[in-house]
Simulated assay, not measured.
Amino acid sequence: MDLLALADFNLVARFGSFGEAARATERPKATLSRRITELENSLRLRLFERGPRGLKLTQEGRALYERTGALLAELADSAAAITSGGEQPRGRLRISAPVLFSHVAMGKLAATFALKHPEVRLEITTEDRPVDMVEEGYDLVIRVNPDPDENLVGRVFLRDRMVVAAAPVLTRRKEEPAVSAVLRRGDERTACWDVSGPEGTSRLSIRPVAHLSSLIMVRDMVRLGVGAACLPLSLVSHDVATGRLANWGDVEGPEIALWTLYPSRRLLSARVSAFLDHLKDAFPLGTPEELAAYAGSDL
């Protein structure tokens, strides 16, 4: 198989059109089109459907793109490392990270990584939705309790747990049927929390007073005594330590685990390996208290 033609195929597949690929690489559009046609003829497969709305990968084309795109990127990384005389991280590093973690830690992580590896160009997207790493061109994703995916491998680098936190002015009275609560949007059907503490597990009935889309906004309302809330320990541990908030106990439920994920069918590039090491250096123990301390400290 012609590797140059395969590289041109991956280029066009990534940009989604001959015109965009030609403009990005300053190569003739006709040359790219001819190379793709030659590749299709040699494979006896149609790789693109060509229509009035542009190009669309066929089923065979998508399979070829998913299996060869990462390998070609790895070849490029290896060539760059050889010509530069070492495995110095360089090039673009695209990362997708969840919203809350990005707000409390990714800015500092990105800054310290950039200072350490100036030849890496970071591109970080903040979102909670599951992303398609191959289709969307991510090198690394960070996710909370991700679903198993046979096409990805990864590791846990941080653990957290949910606690019920409230301002000291808000007390739990046995005579009250329910406590005022600030909830995150999506938890509208929640009627109670199972809370465990030194005295065992108890069920706490709640009366929602607000629904917010951000846990940071939820915490801010709780600080002002509006109600109690179920929040990650890392987000409130500093407030609990200083007496600004009270920890009523752990919420029964699955542990929160933050994972780094990357494609399993490729060797890790130097830049991905460097960022994984950077996370390990930042969170050697991977505890909620460690994340809280990292987010609250100066650069």
Rank of each mutant, 00 (worst) to 15 (best):
L3R: 12
L4V: 12
A5K: 13
A5R: 14
L6S: 03
D8C: 08
D8Q: 10
F9D: 04
L11V: 04
A13V: 08
R14M: 01
F15H: 14
G16V: 03
F18V: 03
G19F: 02
E20D: 12
A21F: 02
R23H: 08
R23W: 03
A24E: 06
S33D: 01
S33V: 00
S33Q: 14
S33P: 00
R34V: 07
I36Q: 00
E38N: 10
S42C: 02
S42W: 00
R46P: 01
R46G: 00
L47V: 06
F48T: 10
R50L: 03
G51V: 01
P52Q: 06
Q59R: 14
R62S: 10
G69Y: 11
A70V: 12
L71T: 12
A73R: 14
A76M: 08
S78Q: 15
S78T: 13
T83M: 04
S84G: 15
G85V: 09
G85T: 08
G91A: 04
L93H: 05
I95T: 04
S96T: 05
S96I: 01
P98F: 06
V99T: 15
S102I: 05
H103T: 05
A110Y: 07
A111C: 10
A111R: 15
P118Q: 10
P118V: 13
E119Q: 15
T125M: 04
E127L: 12
V131T: 10
E135R: 15
E135V: 08
E136W: 03
E136Y: 03
G137Q: 01
R143W: 09
N145K: 07
P146T: 13
D149P: 02
L152H: 06
V153W: 00
R155Q: 11
R159Y: 04
D160T: 10
A167G: 04
S180Q: 11
S180Y: 01
S180I: 00
A181F: 15
V182D: 03
D187W: 13
R189E: 11
C192A: 15
D194H: 14
V195R: 12
S196L: 06
E199M: 07
T201M: 13
T201R: 15
S213P: 09
S213V: 01
S214P: 11
I216N: 00
I216S: 10
M217N: 11
V222W: 06
L224F: 05
L224Q: 14
V226S: 07
G227W: 09
C230K: 15
P232E: 13
L233S: 03
L233N: 02
L235C: 13
A241Q: 11
G243K: 07
R244M: 06
L245H: 05
W248I: 11
W248E: 12
W248C: 03
G253D: 11
I256T: 14
A257S: 14
L258F: 15
W259P: 06
T260M: 10
T260G: 02
P263Y: 08
R271Y: 00
V272F: 06
F275W: 09
L276Q: 13
L279M: 07
K280L: 02
A282R: 08
P284D: 08
P288M: 04
E289T: 04
L291V: 03
G296R: 13
D298R: 14
D298Q: 13
